[in-house]
Design a protein around this nucleic acid. Structure first.
Length: 488
DNA sequence: AGCTAGTTGGG
DNA sequence: CCAACTAGC
């Protein structure tokens, strides 16, 4: 006992930095505070599947490699990373005790359950005579900072973002700390491999590994490439699903390899210097959606389970396991939807526009509960975010705060012809349709038989017929929504 | 961050 | 024939 109180009372008692969704050394305020204390520093990551929403399969693959990356980045600063498993409010105080830590820092997490645990954790640390400190690294603005004139949270994105952009800009990112050192004794941890984050057999992650390299170094490379090649024309090209015109930075934000403030200022500085005001504003507004989703999660902690719009509690979603499986596996017979869902399975990612179309098809045309889609995305997306994923599904389903009304139903053929006019996206992920001409690539069921024959397509054999007639599905959804609207 | 059906005005 | 525009879902 005396050892603990002595240790935490001296300046040379080590600082412990708990990592979470902030796998970076750049603009990491918890790390910077530990470094600036002048104490030796140890980093800790606790895999705690009992607190909050455990990451899905694709995110666990990313986490494995992201931890390896941040371990290397920390090692370059002379800081060891200790890996542990278990309940964070028990494990962190235990590690802090064996280290004799004085200062214990971490960055705020978006998951409401994690925040509850962290409140208990802070209590436990204080009771042990240590100094817990929490920082905000995951947001541009503090929770609740963006308010209506009446001091209430916004429920609609556009006024939210207008008010946010009228505030002083988020403060500048912090540089990588200098002069850090490790203590003589570092508590034992687990080997990364023993956390069991990556699939062994079958290894379904090959396509993901081919597409992505987790880590802050790759995030910085992608950001630089986007600023050089992607920002100019972003506003106009971002919806083209067949062209790689988006930044693909979402998983790097999800795991905190890239700080939102670093990204905000990098884009704003470049857009200002290069006269790309509209492109910069459009891109930064996407960060604004991420911010808005976090505000929603703060207000609605059950965001992935409960519709914000209570009218939808009574909505009769269809129980359709066959339709759900067809959607998940990319064999609905609707080319753009199937391309999106196969892209998801292969790469852990879907372009924003294709995401909306695929999600809309499940919720509107198949009338399957948005929560089933949300769970599938949660398990398969490398960027599955505790706030953005459920909030966006509620938006698509029309039951969210700032929801597109339920009656806004995407037509996947029309969307395909507008945003993938050359069929590049469909041909890449649905190769059995590649031989079709552009005029039928998004509607093979309307192609004349000689066109199908020439393309080597046999509907119902080489590629499915639509699981539902689009017009019929649209009318059914509208009718069901009318029932709700009348009953409200 | 929609779609459809219907209208109008121009070739 | 089409593009542009609108109301209503």
């Amino acid at each position: 006992m005396s050892r603990l109180s002595n240790a935490s009372g001296t300046d040379d008692a080590p600082a412990l930095v708990r990592f979470g969704d902030d796998l970076r050394v750049d603009d990491n305020p918890a790390l910077t505070a530990a470094a600036e204390s002048g104490r030796p520093v140890v980093a800790l990551f606790v895999l705690d599947d009992g607190t909050g929403r455990p990451p899905g399969g694709a995110a666990r693959w990313w986490l494995h490699h992201g931890l390896a990356a941040v371990r290397d980045d920390l090692a370059a600063l002379g800081i060891p990373l200790v890996l542990r498993k278990g309940a964070a409010d028990l494990v962190v105080p235990g590690v802090a005790a064996s280290l004799g830590a004085g200062l214990v820092t971490w960055n705020h997490r978006a998951d409401p359950a994690a925040q509850e645990t962290e409140a208990r954790l802070a209590e436990a640390l204080r009771a042990d005579g240590r100094q817990p400190r929490r920082f905000l690294a995951d947001r541009l603005f503090a929770p609740g900072e963006v308010q209506t004139g009446a001091g209430r949270p916004f429920r609609v994105f556009t006024p939210f973002w207008r008010a946010a952009m009228a505030l002083p800009p988020p403060h500048r990112p912090k540089p990588v700390p200098q002069g850090t050192r490790a203590p003589a004794d570092v508590p034992a941890g687990e080997a990364l491999e023993s956390l069991g984050l990556v699939p062994v057999a079958p290894d379904w992650a090959g396509g993901i590994a081919a597409q992505w390299r987790p880590g802050a170094g790759e995030a910085a490379r992608r950001l630089a490439a986007f600023l050089d090649d992607g920002l100019a024309g972003y506003a106009e090209r971002r919806d083209d699903v067949g062209v790689d015109a988006t930044s693909c930075l979402s998983p790097y934000l999800r795991f905190g390899h890239l700080s939102p403030r670093r990204l905000f200022h990098a884009v704003r500085d470049r857009a200002g210097a290069d006269g790309l005001g509209a492109d910069g504003a459009k891109f930064i507004a996407e960060l604004g959606w991420r911010e808005f989703c976090r505000e929603l999660l703060d207000q609605f902690p059950a965001l992935h389970e409960e519709p914000i719009d209570h009218r939808f509690a009574a909505f009769q979603w269809r129980d359709d396991p066959v339709g759900l499986a067809a959607w998940q596996q990319g064999r609905t017979g609707i080319p753009l939807v199937d391309a999106a869902m196969r892209c998801l399975w292969q790469t852990g990612f879907i372009h924003n526009r294709a995401r909306m179309v695929a999600a809309s098809f499940l919720v509107k045309h198949l009338m399957i509960d948005w929560r089933a889609g949300e769970r599938w995305f949660w398990d398969t997306l490398v960027d599955a975010d505790v706030a953005s994923n459920p909030a966006s599904w509620q938006w698509v389903a029309g039951c969210g705060a700032d929801a597109a009304p339920f009656i806004r139903i995407f037509n996947p053929v029309r969307q395909g012809e507008r945003f993938d006019p050359a069929g590049r996206y469909v041909r890449r992920f649905v190769p059995e349709l590649a031989g079709l001409p552009d005029s039928f690539i998004h509607r093979p069921w309307e192609a004349p038989s000689d066109v199908l024959r020439t393309a080597g397509v046999r509907l119902g054999e080489t590629y499915p017929r639509p699981v539902i007639d689009l017009d019929e599905g649209r009318k059914r959804a509208l009718a069901a929504f009318e029932d709700i609207r009348r009953g409200e």
